[in-house]
Design a binder for these strands. Structure first.
Lengths: 229, 229
DNA sequence: TGTATTCAATTTGTATACATTTCGTATACG
DNA sequence: CGTATACGAAATGTATACAAATTGAATACA
């Protein structure tokens, strides 16, 4: 793939993941072709690929739109994620990371830096790459297809629900970093059961955080200080 | 999508599934564009879609080739299939088929006819559509992505290993038909546990049949009629 | 006022011509 | 004789021009 095209591909992926292109928002062919200095033909090929990867949705006669995140889809996401995360991590550990543990450590280092710097977008992207690479380590194309789609939505949900200014958010982020370190160790050691255990705990953490934002604690009534149901 | 293009898409899918295009075989752009009366631009878009669905493999500067079926991939196939088949069937049953049970019955009827007529290609294709539809009934795009890829390889493996002239093959095909009927009943009734049970038994039947062809019973020695190890 | 219909403007889809890359073959050289 | 290199034919990748379809607004009508 020509560098211009893969750059375009990567940029659009990033824009979708960071919500620079919001779910459901349309992508303007002519404008993007102009912006990246390519003609519409290769741009449309990039669209096809993004569509196949689950980043955008392409329907005949309609403009390309970033994949939506409606309620049914979120329900399916929460339903499917733990199974696929556990299965891919197990395989990755059984292969002892397929010799790619150094890459994983490198991404983790960048993730760590981004969290300390408080850069939510960067942190989310490196977190995405971290879990994506574990999927590649599993070396199972069938499960990877499922995992890749899950990760797109997971990253976007995290972006939506992440408030960098939150008071105890810092502690949660710290636990995410530590979880990653433990996952790396378990994968490198080939300890599949432990890798799965950590992964499911990691998932539970993320899920709870997202659920808290979907259904936040009820506000206190400023006039009558009793707790609401 | 214009009818000409979706026809082209469906035809190429069929050719790959029936091994009319063998695994690893190259697809000639110019020839296919000529054959279907379209220009190379829409043909290449169809290629992109087939690539994303797992039917063909597209690499820059190389011609499109039908997906290979090497040993590592087959290993992953046998490893992953039961999990995804069980999960999708469970969801389909929990949704009671999402109102699409009639479609499923229609496909099953055609599958039945094809088996009785001994048309292996047609039988394999309707079997493919049968399981594909169960995937749609599950209504989970993450799992569907995995299932679709599994089914492509499953159908091609069946094509490879199916000998219509086999003596006791008829009984096995009969059991496959009956399994399908039971799966329809369980899905329509919303009996998820039973649907999963039948699906796993159905899988075991198919797996055993494929394994028998990969590692066939040893031949008898015509000179010394003792059984070999 | 609300709804249906027509038409222009915009956008998407396709064809073709051209640029670039790859692959096979022939030839030169070690 | 085997290997490396250079060339040419053929295939892939891109740009542009044109055709078809969709969108939105303005107008006519109930």
């Amino acid at each position: 793939m020509t560098p211009k095209k893969s750059d375009l591909l990567e940029t659009l992926r990033t824009r979708v993941l960071t919500l620079a292109i919001a779910p459901g928002a349309a992508l303007d062919e002519a404008a993007l072709a102009e912006e990246f200095g390519v003609s519409r033909t290769p741009l449309r090929e990039v669209f096809q690929k993004l569509d196949s990867e689950g980043y955008i949705s392409l329907r005949p006669g309609r403009s390309a739109v970033a994949s939506s995140m409606d309620m049914p889809r979120m329900r399916q996401f929460f339903q499917t994620a733990p199974m696929i995360y556990a299965a891919t991590t197990r395989l990755a550990a059984e292969h002892r990371g397929a010799g790619r543990v150094p890459e994983l450590r490198a991404i983790q280092a960048k993730f760590c830096v981004a969290t300390l710097a408080g850069d939510a977008d960067q942190a989310a992207l490196f977190n995405h790459h971290f879990h994506n690479l574990i999927g590649e380590m599993a070396g199972n194309p069938y499960l990877s297809a499922a995992l890749d789609r899950l990760l797109i939505d997971h990253t976007r949900l995290s972006e939506m629900f992440f408030s960098p200014a939150g008071p105890d958010e810092a502690a949660l982020v710290g636990r995410a970093v530590s979880d990653h370190d433990q996952m790396i160790a378990a994968i490198a050691a080939g300890e599949a059961a432990r890798a799965v255990e950590i992964t499911l705990a990691h998932w539970a953490l993320s899920r709870d955080r997202m659920e808290r934002f979907v259904r936040p604690d009820p506000l206190e009534d400023p006039l009558n200080r009793e707790a609401l149901p």
